[in-house]
Design a protein around this nucleic acid. Structure first.
Lengths: 101, 101
DNA sequence: GATCGCTACATTTAATGAAATATAACGAAG
DNA sequence: CTTCGTTATATTTCATTAAATGTAGCGATC
């Protein structure tokens, strides 16, 4: 679980399908599907439930469990960020302004 | 910068060369050298200084700047860890006991 | 000659992208 | 009422590409 998967989860929750979520995030459908598959297999219960077929071809939605994980993750991310914000910026100030080059 | 690079930095500091540090960490010399190279290029100043040739063929040591970065990184890691420890364990308890499978 | 830093090349592995297939609700004929 | 085509998606397969890794050798110094 990281910021990328969390963003994808939110996108899927917003638009109602993996493919539309992928488009919104500018990634390939396969990449999005792989991320969803990884999340669903990593946790005890699926975070995303999917349906194939139907008038709109199918769709996906974030489960109650998925919302719970997402909420916990975002809370943790935020808390950790606040907690070391000062130290982090000090460390970043030691980085080269040119990146790796 | 992550736990792996920090560990490598400490190993190099302990044993005095990239190759011995790599052996100690169970990685190839090339991998260790690449990590050191990345660190040296990412920061404003090198974290590791090297010498080729000499009585023992050369060696490497962590610079004063490198020690500073390492100390800051470890402090931050520890603080962030403590800060979200409870939440992190709650989240981990939601993971499948079988990993991705 | 020994040991190490460093580099270039080959190889193996992982990520990516594109394309083919499967699915099921829906509506329009018939 | 039944069949069929349409539709937008999920899912899988396969080829391609990029990245990581391993191998082998060179130059340096004591």
């Amino acid at each position: 679980m990281g910021p990328g998967k969390a963003d994808l989860l939110e996108a899927i929750d917003r638009v109602g399908s993996i493919s539309a979520g992928a488009r919104e995030m500018g990634m390939s459908y396969k990449r999005a599907w792989d991320l969803v598959d990884t999340m669903n297999r990593c946790f005890k219960q699926p975070l995303v439930a999917t349906a194939t077929g139907g008038s709109h071809g199918g769709g996906a939605h974030v489960t109650e469990f998925g919302h719970d994980v997402l909420r916990r993750y975002r809370a943790m991310e935020c808390k950790a960020n606040d907690c070391v914000s000062a130290e982090l910026h000090e460390l970043i100030s030691l980085l080269s302004p040119f990146g790796e080059d």
